[in-house]
Amino acid sequence: MEKSNKDILDNPDLKKNPWSPPQEYFMALEERVHLAIKEEEESTPSLISRLKPSLMLFLMFGIIAGIGYLSLKLTDALQKPSAIAEKDGIMALIENGYLKSSFIEEYYDEIDLGNLYSDAMQEITFERIMDENLSEDELMDYIDY
């Protein structure tokens, strides 16, 4: 079966072109091609019309970039530098003591650190007196001191 089909494809008549163009087609073709070339050359786009797509692309890019910038600005995403500057200002106020930076700092400010230290020292001294077996003279010296 395959052999018979291969014979069909080997038939040289099959290789002949079964189509014929309309009468005088090739006679008119040369003239039509020249005409088409002339039309194409005449309709060659000017510099502006050739640059128009690029300009439009550039304009669109500008518009998109502008919209992007505005939306970022409106959503404060571009406020970071000034926000940092503001924070720096606040830090300066904290460092200069005009502002309380936290609850802990505020709490410690209300405590008299000098008294706290002397109270602690007193406790230590008392403990030492109680712990060590000081003689009466030593004790008197310590009180005088």
């Binding site: 099959l14 079964p18 014929s20």
Partner: peptide
């Protein structure tokens, strides 16, 4: 149905 086709049946099948 091509008016410019002048082939035989074998050519028609092939094309």
């Amino acid at each position: 149905s091509d008016p410019y086709f002048n082939g035989n049946q074998a050519q028609l099948k092939l094309h």
